[in-house]
């Protein structure tokens, strides 16, 4: 037996082994995908649902994952202050006045060196006055601010500040120009339409962020970031404030209900794609698929041919 394994059977055995391993690993995402996957168990579908499928059916309703990620007041403390405006499931809050004082201290320590003590900007960094708490919340809660080197596009990082601290900073900046700019949106996804979100996303977002939300390189060194970590609040903040090179979508352009639908589509579909077919291959389309077809497909078959045939 030993000689057999070592001998001319090494290749096919290794082959079957490799394929088996790939198969085992591949099962992992397919099981994981079964969470909030937006596939309905249609009444006509003849599925004798396997165990993994059951939660998918339950979570399929767009209401199921409502607003779980959207509340800025994570600890439940009354820090959101007063609502500025509210419509179609999005309420824009101005942070509570009690947060301004601690916010000023945090701001002075981490932001003032570039943006100025009064948030009026400097030669190194833009004026923050009038942008509103929502804009500040976006930059700080995605970890893009504080930024060490202002010459490159800020990248998403683990945030430096916790939720409360972020709101405090936002409260301080907002307090410089009360009532101006965008508030912090709290998004209630319970009434959101994934279908509307889908077509709005395709029309307004996919040209830069790609249709799978993977992001890509743009012109002149800029890039559109991946949307796979964005929360519903951050999505709406980005739509409203247009960070960096991103266009700026006002309510006359994308209404609140449309922004909510996009947020729902991003957080429920883009971030939990239905990869029914197996590995998503990074969502970068035919480039990845081509490499797999050539290296794995043709490559393995060439190895098989190498086994079958004569080699000298």
């Amino acid at each position: 037996m030993r000689t057999l394994i070592r001998g001319r059977f090494a290749l096919p055995v290794a082959l079957v082994g490799v394929v088996g391993l790939v198969g085992l690993v591949a099962f992992t995402p397919s099981a994981a995908q079964a969470g909030p996957a937006p596939v309905a168990t249609a009444p006509t579908a003849t599925t004798a649902a396997p165990t993994a499928k059951a939660p998918a059916g339950a979570a399929a309703h767009p209401t199921a994952t409502a607003a779980s990620t959207a509340s800025p007041a994570a600890a439940g403390t009354s820090v959101t202050g007063s609502p500025l405006t509210s419509s179609h499931g999005i309420t824009y809050y101005e942070p509570a006045g009690s947060l301004i004082a601690p916010g000023q201290a945090l701001y002075a320590a981490s932001c003032a060196s570039c943006h100025g003590v009064d948030a009026a900007g400097s030669a190194r960094a833009p004026n923050l006055q009038g942008l509103g708490a929502g804009t500040v919340d976006f930059w700080v809660s995605t970890g893009r601010m504080p930024l060490a080197n202002s010459s490159v596009q800020a990248t998403r990082k683990p945030p430096r500040f916790n939720r409360l601290q972020t709101l405090e900073i936002a409260a301080f900046v907002q307090s410089r120009t009360p009532g101006l700019g965008i508030g912090i949106p709290v998004v209630n996804l319970s009434q959101a339409s994934l279908a509307a979100g889908n077509s709005l996303f395709t029309l307004n977002c996919a040209a830069c962020h790609t249709i799978t939300g993977a992001g890509d390189e743009l012109a002149y060194g800029a890039y559109a970031p991946s949307l796979h970590l964005a929360t519903a609040t951050q999505v709406v903040e980005a739509i409203r404030s247009g960070p960096g090179n991103m266009p700026h979508f006002s309510e006359g352009n994308i209404t609140n209900s449309e922004a909510r639908d996009i947020a729902a589509y991003v957080t429920e579909v883009i971030q939990h794609p239905v990869d029914r077919g197996g590995f998503g291959l990074g969502g970068i389309g035919p480039v990845g698929e081509g490499f797999v077809a050539l290296l794995f497909g043709v490559g393995v078959l060439m190895l098989v041919a190498f086994w079958i045939g004569e080699r000298s």
Binding site: A206, P273, G278, E289
Partner: peptide, 26 residues
């Protein structure tokens, strides 16, 4: 095991819509 061309993620084609990073097959 390897998903290819998940068209449900891409949506219906409209001549005025586009996704970045689209390539043809290899």
């Amino acid at each position: 095991f390897a998903q290819i061309n998940p068209i449900w993620q891409f949506g219906q084609y409209q001549p005025y819509q586009i996704s970045y990073a689209v390539q043809p097959d290899w």
